[in-house]
Computed example of a mutant assay.
Amino acid sequence: MKTMVVGASKGLGRALIEGLGEAGDTLMGVSRSRPQGLQAREGVDLQWVEADLTQPREAAQRLEQAVAGQGLDTLVYNLGIWETRAFAPGYDFLADDDAEVQAIVNCNITATLLVIKRLLPTLLQSPRPRIILTGSTSGLSQSGRPEVSFGASKFALRGIADALREGYRQHRLGVTCLNLGYLNTDDPLATPREVAALRGEGQLIPVHDVVQVVRMALSLSSASFVKELTLPAMADERF
């Protein structure tokens, strides 16, 4: 299996690179620069593409060139930025800088669309094409969050997923949207999961759990797929 992980240099993306794949598989990480000391599982061929998704057209073209001739089975799009004051008690949409709002839309929506558009012809050549979009519980109805631009961009991911499923159902394209709650990205995959689960006193999800969910989704046969999955923290009172 050949899998591309966009936004792979740190946090959840780094954990996905370290936790996905089996011997003989190929993982292709994407970020502005290749991080130091990042290793895939034993027997997994790790490749890297340096691309800046704040420049969507150029980045999408670079990724298209990277998969040309070698194929692609799965795209994991794990990229998103949010407001400077997001998730803080004093957040106020009216205080958001106009340029920041535009940057969030550009990175979280425009880049997603252009990358998928460029990679889709190659993906559809796979016998089991899959796209996994890293969404957020902020993209759910009545999410309880006031961040307008970030929330709108995560709502958009769900719309992108729905439209892709309908447009390419005959190609058996499986598109999964993961609605994730607050993550513990301080503890890497090398940290024992039991230890990572203690951080945040039930308010944070270890990246280990997300990696496990993605591995499960990718292990299914071509007869089924995970349409949408919501993964909140145990003590998140919104759920």
Rank of each mutant, 00 (worst) to 15 (best):
Q39M: 10
M1E: 03
P121R: 04
I205P: 01
N106W: 11
P232I: 05
D162V: 07
P35E: 00
H171Y: 03
D186L: 14
N179M: 09
F150N: 10
L198G: 08
G71F: 01
V105D: 07
Q212S: 14
T134G: 02
L72E: 00
A217N: 07
D45Q: 07
I104W: 13
Q39G: 01
L75H: 02
R62E: 12
E83K: 06
V115F: 05
F239E: 03
F225C: 03
L229D: 04
F239G: 04
R14A: 03
Q47M: 05
T54L: 10
Q65T: 15
T134K: 02
A68G: 10
R62K: 14
K117W: 09
E166I: 08
L46N: 04
E100L: 10
A59Q: 09
P129I: 00
S222A: 15
A217V: 14
A68M: 09
T84Y: 12
G200T: 15
S149C: 13
I104M: 09
P146H: 09
L220A: 07
L53H: 05
M28P: 02
I109D: 02
L231V: 14
S33L: 06
F155N: 07
G80Q: 06
D97L: 12
I109G: 01
R34P: 02
S224I: 13
D45T: 10
V105K: 05
N78T: 03
L46E: 04
G43S: 06
L183Q: 08
N106Y: 08
D45K: 05
S136G: 07
L53T: 04
Q102T: 12
L63V: 07
G13A: 02
H208I: 10
G200L: 13
F93W: 15
Q47W: 04
L204P: 05
G200E: 12
D209Q: 14
S143M: 11
A161D: 02
A233T: 12
G90P: 05
A86L: 11
L53A: 03
I17H: 00
N108C: 13
A60C: 11
A68I: 06
E166N: 13
L27H: 01
A99N: 13
C107H: 15
S136K: 08
G144Y: 11
P206V: 13
R32C: 11
Y168T: 00
R57T: 09
Q36R: 11
L46Q: 05
G167R: 02
H208W: 12
L189V: 04
P129L: 00
A196S: 14
V101D: 08
R32H: 10
V213P: 06
P146Q: 09
F225S: 02
L114A: 07
L63H: 03
V207K: 01
T54W: 08
G174C: 05
L189H: 03
R215G: 02
E194T: 14
C107I: 15
E228T: 09
G139A: 11
S9K: 08
I132H: 00
V30H: 00
D187K: 07
L231N: 07
S143Q: 12
N78E: 02
A51W: 04
K154M: 07
V49Q: 04
E83D: 09
Q142N: 15
K227S: 10
P206Q: 11
G13D: 01
E58F: 10
G181Q: 08
V101K: 13
K227I: 05
T191L: 10
A60V: 10
L20Y: 02
V6H: 01
E237Q: 11
L75S: 02
Q212H: 14
